[in-house]
Design a protein around this nucleic acid. Structure first.
Length: 366
DNA sequence: GACCAATGTTGAC
DNA sequence: TCAACCTTGGTCC
């Protein structure tokens, strides 16, 4: 059940593991046999994420170019419970996680965060206080290829469950299960998918931190305009991928809480400055999510011991990592219905909006 | 062991 | 509006 940060991590992992390698592509389950045949034997040029959409570019292995006619794009959307499971040969690929021969990326990934970076809170979006930029190495990739030679006689594990597609490279395999979407597109078809999406805070933030020119597609003004164009509640607009790409049910609830914004407020009535602040906060929170693999929105002073019952526990990817914020201390409102608001003490509310549970504090959010 | 909800989206009715 | 996707973890018995 990934939000955008997970898919961005996934794109990095696939690039790190396979870029430049000729892959064997199969569909053990059989449902993607035709697509797999279109990709089998090609070279993985790179993977990228736009919101929750994953695109993996394949080019011909022999004498091909990256001209559009030669590129085939694997498009994957994990949906509610899709996942990638990785297995490596264990000697040529160093997995930073200790003793993790099998890594699942998707929901229960075990890619480690950058050491020491876990407990740094993302400051609330107050005034023009510029949040301290995240410390630690940027673009944590978690894997380091230290040898190019394949390990002799290494055999990947048998596919587990209904594996839609398996990518096999020199040092590792990646298995995709239960995606909502898995298809082969031309580059222009892939771009058409991107054009349907709103701006992606992670892409915008990546470009800003790298000092490179952001794609105009990711301009935050598109987000501000889209929300204000409609009287639809801002809480509903945030879940619309054509308004902002990559935000899911946790980031929606949490970013509105951190902005103290009532989710039911009509989008058209939210001031531009407030929406700008929401965007800036999404950039910070989601880049933090990419870096650590976990969503943590609470400030340390709000993680009061005993502030939760332990029910509605939400798994966090880094639960086992020393220094990680416990999962039941990570959120202000998400999955905390009936529990006291961490700030005002009044019970957190849950209301269903368009089929999804929306959590908020009626006292703090107006 | 049965049952259910879920960090999501698409398409049929 | 609802089923499909067909996994995973938690709860309840």
């Amino acid at each position: 059940m990934p939000e955008g940060h997970t898919v961005h991590r996934l794109a990095r992992a696939l690039t790190d593991l396979f870029a430049g390698q000729r892959l064997t592509v199969t569909s053990p389950q059989g449902r993607f046999a035709g697509g797999a045949a279109l990709l089998d034997g090609r070279v993985l040029a790179g993977a990228s994420a736009w919101g929750k959409q994953l695109f993996v570019d394949f080019v011909p292995a022999d004498g091909g170019t990256r001209a559009p006619d030669d590129v085939r794009v694997l498009r994957v959307h994990l949906g509610l419970y899709g996942a990638w499971t990785f297995a490596g040969d264990g000697s040529a690929v160093v997995v930073q996680a200790i003793g993790a021969p099998r890594r699942r990326i998707g929901e229960t990934e075990t890619l480690p965060p950058v050491a020491g970076a876990l407990d740094e809170p993302v400051p609330l979006p107050r005034g023009d206080e510029s949040p301290a930029s995240a410390s630690g190495p940027e673009g944590d990739v978690a894997l380091e290829v230290v040898a190019d030679a394949p390990v002799p006689d290494w055999q990947p594990p048998a596919p587990r469950g209904a594996v839609r597609v398996r990518l096999r490279g020199v040092h590792a395999v990646a298995d995709l299960t239960a995606p909502t979407t898995c298809e082969v597109l031309t580059p222009s078809e892939a771009r058409a998918v991107v054009e349907r999406l709103g701006p992606d805070p992670i892409r915008w933030g990546d470009a800003a931190r790298a000092g490179t020119e952001p794609d105009p597609h990711d301009d935050p003004q598109r987000f501000v305009d889209a929300v204000r164009r409609s009287r639809t509640p801002v809480g509903a607009r945030l879940m619309d991928q054509s308004v902002v790409a990559g935000v899911g049910n946790i980031y929606r609830a949490e970013v509105l809480y951190r902005a103290r914004l009532d989710p039911f407020r009509p989008g058209s009535s939210v001031p531009v400055e407030d929406l700008r602040a929401v965007w800036d906060d999404l950039v910070e929170l989601m880049l933090d999510g990419v870096r650590t693999g976990a969503i943590v929105t609470t400030l340390p002073e709000d993680r009061v011991p005993g502030g939760t019952t332990g029910r509605h526990r939400v798994r966090q990817n880094s639960d086992a990592v020393p220094g990680a914020v416990p999962s039941d201390a990570s959120f202000y409102v998400y999955h905390r219905e009936g529990l006291p608001c961490r700030v005002c003490g009044n019970p957190v509310l849950v209301r269903e909006v368009a089929g999804r549970n929306l959590y908020s504090c009626a006292t703090c959010q107006r």
